[in-house]
Amino acid sequence: MKNTLSHIIYDKTSQLPNTWNDLGQKNIFLSKEYLEVLEKSAPTNMTCHFIGLFQDNILVGIAVSQFLDLNKLESFGDRDQCIKAHVRKFILKSFSSHVLLIGNNMLTGQNSFILSDSITASQGIQAFKKAADELKIKFKSIGKKVHITTFKDFFKKDLENFNTIAFKNNYKYCIQPNMVFEIQKNWKSEQDYINALSKKYRDQYKRARKKAEGIEKRKLHLDEIIRYEDVIYDLYFHVAKNAPFNTFFLTKNHFRVFKETLHDKFLFYGYFLDDKLIGFNTLIKNGSVMDTYFLGYDDSIQREKMLYLNMLYDMIAYSINKGFKEIIFSRTALEIKSSVGAKPIEMFGFMEHSNSQINKHVPKIFPKLEPEIVWQERNPFK
């Protein structure tokens, strides 16, 4: 079938066609409501666009793009102070500071696009590639030359869709896996999960719960999220700044805007000790899937009370009780997520540098830039 697809790039959600959510409802992260959250509270170094694909004036595909200006970052993450980390920062600032993504750098998983059944994935991806090329021209016109263009977070089964001439100069990369927790059909309560654990990991569960005695967990509503906004941001920023690598930092109003816009689909839990907020985590309901989002904590209390591990157990308990099928735990902290039962799923992406000489060397350079993660996969179940 001849590919007669056209595209329109939108700067604002108010411009989106009325039929956008016919496709957007399949994934909350491409719904008009979520895109409004990005529009109102994206990181300051991020510019978002929304792409519609049309066939005979009918919307057949939607996507999100993000332009990242890494020059605006004060820190790429302060945890690693090794030479490799300094080299990575130098290379990113010097040669790769302007990154254009088809996809969402704030999430893990295929949240890049949705297509209708009337076109193939290969057709859609090639059309989005043309939109990305147009976006590069758009940014160049305002003095921002795109250095790297990337399509991110695809499953192994999706890779054949990129086997086209449009991606012949792209480097296929595979970075840290997405940690996914599958909820067994026969689990109806947290106790069913505990019963499925082997003795070693049941003991880990009991030890963590005992350590957390005295901590009160509360679901926070919008007025409380606003009231605690400064503390929330400090807790988030502490965790984010100590990550091995960052390409953005959230704005202070991000969680408030999320709650205002997505209401009950966005859950915010605060953890209190002696009436003081010492940690929080966030969840997003995405159909039958629960996505974990950003969290924060006071590090000194986190260690003593095993707060992070308790948060993972709380997320699992809630998701089982509410009948979700799986939990997306995303990247980072791979081993501890593995210890509660999450499994690593390989995710792939494609990237191309605008400088053809540099692009030739990307297969050698890129693996050296990735923070090295050494971890051991666990199986906590009987």
Score class of each variant (00 low, 15 high):
residue 111 N to H: 15
residue 39 E to P: 05
residue 132 A to P: 02
residue 11 D to C: 09
residue 288 S to Q: 11
residue 267 L to E: 12
residue 113 F to E: 10
residue 104 N to A: 12
residue 325 K to C: 02
residue 114 I to F: 04
residue 137 I to Q: 12
residue 162 F to M: 13
residue 146 V to A: 03
residue 3 N to H: 00
residue 318 Y to C: 02
residue 328 I to T: 09
residue 78 D to H: 02
residue 196 A to S: 15
residue 180 V to E: 08
residue 3 N to I: 05
residue 262 L to G: 06
residue 22 D to V: 13
residue 155 F to H: 14
residue 210 K to N: 14
residue 198 S to K: 15
residue 19 T to A: 14
residue 330 S to E: 08
residue 240 A to W: 03
residue 296 G to Q: 05
residue 51 I to T: 04
residue 11 D to V: 08
residue 102 I to Q: 02
residue 132 A to R: 09
residue 93 K to H: 14
residue 323 G to D: 05
residue 38 L to I: 10
residue 28 I to A: 01
residue 312 L to D: 03
residue 218 R to M: 02
residue 283 L to R: 07
residue 32 K to R: 13
residue 361 H to E: 02
residue 106 M to W: 04
residue 113 F to A: 12
residue 256 R to V: 14
residue 372 E to S: 09
residue 305 K to Q: 10
residue 306 M to N: 13
residue 35 L to H: 04
residue 173 Y to T: 13
residue 67 F to I: 11
residue 374 V to K: 15
residue 159 L to E: 10
residue 260 E to F: 08
residue 67 F to V: 14
residue 28 I to L: 10
residue 369 L to E: 01
residue 92 L to D: 04
residue 109 G to R: 07
residue 112 S to K: 07
residue 288 S to E: 13
residue 42 A to P: 02
residue 281 N to T: 08
residue 181 F to C: 11
residue 8 I to F: 05
residue 117 D to N: 12
residue 112 S to T: 13
residue 133 D to P: 09
residue 97 S to T: 12
residue 305 K to A: 05
residue 376 Q to L: 14
residue 369 L to I: 03
residue 140 K to Y: 05
residue 241 K to F: 07
residue 302 Q to M: 15
residue 84 K to D: 10
residue 153 D to G: 14
residue 167 F to K: 12
residue 290 M to F: 01
residue 2 K to N: 13
residue 156 K to A: 12
residue 232 I to N: 00
residue 60 V to C: 10
residue 22 D to Y: 04
residue 133 D to R: 08
residue 348 F to G: 07
residue 118 S to C: 06
residue 36 E to N: 11
residue 8 I to R: 10
residue 288 S to L: 12
residue 135 L to M: 14
residue 75 S to L: 08
residue 338 S to K: 09
residue 330 S to M: 11
